[in-house]
Design a binder for these strands. Structure first.
Length: 428
RNA sequence: GCGGGUGUAGCUCAGUGGUAGAGCGCCAGGUUGUGGCCCUGGAGGCCGGGGGUUCAAUUCCCCUCAUUCGCCCCA
């Protein structure tokens, strides 16, 4: 085969698309119910935007970005470097700042549905082009807003039909208290460096917080040694986290505090959360997010707190598959025009077009096949009604109307048939 | 970047050192102008690519490519 979809990408065929539409529709509906409005941003942005927002030393920026450069004219080469969007928050905030949405309203609620690109090794639940639904709530640091964002995510997943998901929350502190914790963690682990995996030894120097997230370490032993981040939070962060949990409890949202939940993007502060599903394999996070109160300033805007999440559509669908979720898929039941003989061909096309112009789903066979084959085709596309046009019907100025469920057939004047089909459509 | 699995018909997969099969799908017939179910027939495959061993390789060996699962990281 000469051409195939690039590694880590996939085609969505007609048989797949309805499930995607359904899941996206559930997300849009949930967002609408919570007062979130859609934003659509370009699929690529200035490379610098992502470097700034996500962090120069994160995996995403250091080795996973698809950067593109227009080649050709000198003018193009002078332009800034561009990168295919690796995550959704930075573009949303960029648009918020560029269009000064904060001036229109002190609290802005946005949602998006968009493809993301990361140059990683593909595996189950991880693609080079994947799709995320996500939201961003900008302009308030009210802990209740954290709870709202989390609740929206849970509501969406529940509506899609996902059961058995687990909500984990944590607080990763702020630029005030996190360095304090970082040093306490280093001190606690110092004597254990020798027993840690190669990656963690490196992390000990570069980013010790990520050691908490390592699956290779023996946590049954380390648990007792490692200080709890919650014990090191500064007073405002501790209060914030306590309030978030209090609101979750009032809302009857079941959650687990995961003291080792730290996320990989630099901009996260305070509330950090994930929704994981046990049946997803290695990539079990279906939804992840957190607060990013300093990010807007980092991008050159006014101080504007914010919180949001991203949720992988592919992972949602994997979970649905594992759970054997039954989707209520829309079924188009077209009218099918069957013609018999040359003389009926053009009048049949005319009828087909009249039906379509009247807003009635209508199909016909274009392969010049036998009546039996046309009937088979009608059955295959789920036709509810077949309109049969042959010599007898032409002579009588009529058409045979066959109900494919009952098999009953009757004659109808050709001039009445569109109106009659429209009547059936309105019935339901 | 590193490990393991798998590459045979459109799809899901059997199979053998002597150049290939099933189920489903597709097409057609069983009805001079009638679908589904059933029966019958048919089309469709350089057995991923290259090299080696052999009288002979889809089968054994090596390489390569693709794919998949995992590590890292993330949705």
């Amino acid at each position: 085969m000469k051409y195939q979809a690039p590694r880590g990408t996939q085609d969505l065929l007609p048989e797949d698309a309805p499930r995607w539409r359904y899941v996206e529709q559930m997300f849009r509906q949930t967002c609408a119910d919570f007062g979130y409005e859609e934003v659509r941003t370009p699929v690529f942005e200035s490379t610098d935007l992502f470097v700034r927002a996500v962090g120069e030393h994160t995996d995403i920026v250091s080795k996973e970005m698809y950067s593109v450069s227009a080649h050709g004219s000198e003018a193009d080469e002078r332009r800034e470097r561009l990168t295919l969007r690796p995550e959704g928050t930075a573009p949303a905030l960029r648009a918020y700042l560029q269009h000064n949405l904060g001036a229109k309203s002190p609290l802005t609620r946005l949602f998006y549905v968009a493809p993301n690109f990361r140059h990683e090794r593909p595996q189950s639940g991880r693609l080079r082009q994947h799709h995320q639904t996500g939201i961003e709530a900008l302009g308030s640091e009210d802990p209740a807003l954290d709870a709202e964002v989390i609740t929206l995510g849970l509501t969406y997943l529940r509506r899609v039909g996902i059961t058995g998901a687990r909500l984990e929350v944590n607080s990763v502190g702020c630029p005030e208290c996190r360095p304090v914790y970082r040093e306490r963690l280093r001190a606690a682990l110092e004597s254990r460096i020798g027993t840690m995996c190669e990656n963690c030894r490196r992390r000990y120097d570069t980013n010790p917080l990520r050691i908490l997230d390592c699956k290779a370490e023996d946590w049954s032993v380390l648990e007792a040694v490692v200080p709890d981040l919650a014990d090191c939070l500064c007073e405002p962060c501790a209060q914030h986290f306590a309030h978030v949990q209090a609101v979750l409890q009032v809302l009857d949202v079941p959650y687990e505090r995961n003291p080792r939940l730290v996320r990989g993007l630099d901009y996260y502060v305070r509330t950090s959360f994930e929704i994981v599903h046990p049946q997803l394999g290695a990539q079990s996070t279906v939804l992840g997010g957190g607060r990013y109160d300093g990010l807007m300033e980092e991008l050159g805007g006014p101080p504007t707190p914010g919180i949001g999440f991203g949720c992988g559509i592919e992972r949602v669908l994997l979970a649905c598959e594992a759970l054997e979720v039954a989707f209520p898929l829309e079924a188009v039941r077209p009218v099918f025009v069957v013609t018999l003989g040359e003389a009926a061909r053009l009048p049949g096309l005319r009828l087909l077009n009249d039906l379509r112009q009247a807003g009635i789903a209508a199909q016909a066979d274009y392969l010049g096949r036998s009546m039996k084959a046309q009937m088979r085709a009608a059955n295959r596309v789920g036709a509810r009604t077949v309109l049969l046009l042959g010599e007898n019907e032409l002579a009588a100025g009529a058409i045979a109307v066959k109900d494919m469920e009952t098999g009953a057939q009757e004659s109808c004047p050709l001039s009445d048939v569109v109106g009659r089909m429209r009547g059936r459509k309105d019935e339901g």
